[in-house]
Computed example of a mutant assay.
Amino acid sequence: MHKFTVLLIEDEKSISDFTSRTLTSHNYRVVCASTGAEALSLASSLCPDIFLLDLGLPDMDGMEIIRSLRTWSGSPIIVVSARTLEDDKVRALDAGADDYLTKPFGTSELLARIRTSLRHSNKVNSDNGLPQHPYQAKGLKIDFFKRTITIHEEAVHLTPIEYKIVAFLAQNSGKVMTYSAVMNNVWGPYAESDNKILRVNMANIRRKLEKNPAQPVYIFTEVGVGYRMADDEEIS
C-alpha cells in the first residue's frame, strides 16, 4: 500500500533512477518525467501528493513549471537543483516552491524534507485559518488561539509585530520562508523591500527566545534567503 505519489521531474537519468529507487524503497509511489511538458501533462492527470523538481530541464525553466503548477495545485513542491545561488533559491520559493534542496544531497535529508512538506500539506486547519494544535518544539509552545508563547512553561512576552513574525514562521515550520514572504505577511504587500526592519525584529525575537542567539535552536537563518523555524514536533 503506497503512502503518497511523488512526481519526480528530473532529466538526468542516473539521478532520476537513484532517487526513484530510494523513494520506492520507502513506500512512495514514484512517477518520473524528464521534460517540463511531460511533467505538466502527468501532473494534471495524476494530481500527485508532492513534486520533486529540477530547475534545469531541457525544454523549459523550472520556475515556469512552479508558476504553472501553482495556478491549480496546492501540493508541495521541493526544488532539487544544482543551482546554489541565493537568488535562484529566493526566486523559486517566492514563485511557490515549498523547499529547496541543493545537489548533491543525502538520502536522509531528502526523506526528511519530503516528510516535513507532506505533514504541512495535510495539516488540518480550523475554520478561522489557524492550526488546530499549538506549535511545540524543544520546549517552545505557541498557542495560536490564545496568542501566547511559553518556553518550558515560562511565558515569553513579544510585541504584536514580533508575535506575528514568530507565528507565521511556526505555521510554516520546517520550511524556508523568504524575507519578502515574511514581510508581506507581517507588513502587507506594500512593505519596503529593504528587510532591515525585519532583521531588527528578528534580533529582538532571538534575544527573547534563544538561550544563545548566536546559536539558535528555534529560528534558523538561511543566509540571503530567509528564515526556517524548527519543525513542529506535534504534527502527525
Rank of each mutant, 00 (worst) to 15 (best):
residue 137 A to N: 12
residue 137 A to I: 04
residue 139 G to H: 00
residue 139 G to I: 04
residue 140 L to Q: 01
residue 141 K to S: 09
residue 144 F to W: 00
residue 145 F to P: 07
residue 145 F to E: 15
residue 148 T to I: 04
residue 151 I to C: 09
residue 152 H to F: 14
residue 152 H to R: 10
residue 153 E to L: 02
residue 158 L to E: 01
residue 160 P to S: 08
residue 160 P to Y: 10
residue 160 P to H: 11
residue 162 E to H: 10
residue 163 Y to G: 07
residue 164 K to V: 01
residue 165 I to V: 11
residue 166 V to M: 01
residue 167 A to M: 08
residue 168 F to A: 12
residue 169 L to W: 07
residue 170 A to Y: 08
residue 170 A to E: 10
residue 172 N to V: 01
residue 173 S to G: 04
residue 175 K to F: 09
residue 177 M to N: 13
residue 177 M to V: 12
residue 177 M to S: 13
residue 179 Y to I: 01
residue 179 Y to H: 13
residue 180 S to F: 11
residue 180 S to V: 10
residue 180 S to M: 15
residue 182 V to P: 02
residue 182 V to D: 06
residue 184 N to S: 13
residue 185 N to A: 14
residue 188 G to L: 01
residue 189 P to C: 13
residue 190 Y to T: 12
residue 191 A to S: 14
residue 192 E to V: 06
residue 193 S to E: 14
residue 194 D to C: 12
residue 194 D to W: 09
residue 196 K to G: 04
residue 196 K to S: 13
residue 197 I to A: 13
residue 199 R to M: 10
residue 200 V to I: 11
residue 200 V to D: 12
residue 201 N to Y: 15
residue 202 M to C: 05
residue 206 R to E: 07
residue 208 K to L: 00
residue 208 K to S: 00
residue 209 L to C: 01
residue 209 L to Y: 06
residue 210 E to N: 01
residue 210 E to S: 03
residue 210 E to I: 00
residue 212 N to S: 08
residue 213 P to Y: 03
residue 214 A to V: 06
residue 214 A to D: 09
residue 214 A to K: 14
residue 217 V to D: 05
residue 218 Y to K: 07
residue 219 I to N: 05
residue 219 I to Y: 07
residue 219 I to F: 11
residue 225 V to K: 05
residue 225 V to C: 04
residue 226 G to N: 03
residue 226 G to K: 04
residue 228 R to D: 03
residue 228 R to G: 03
residue 229 M to G: 02
residue 229 M to C: 07
residue 230 A to G: 06
residue 232 D to T: 04
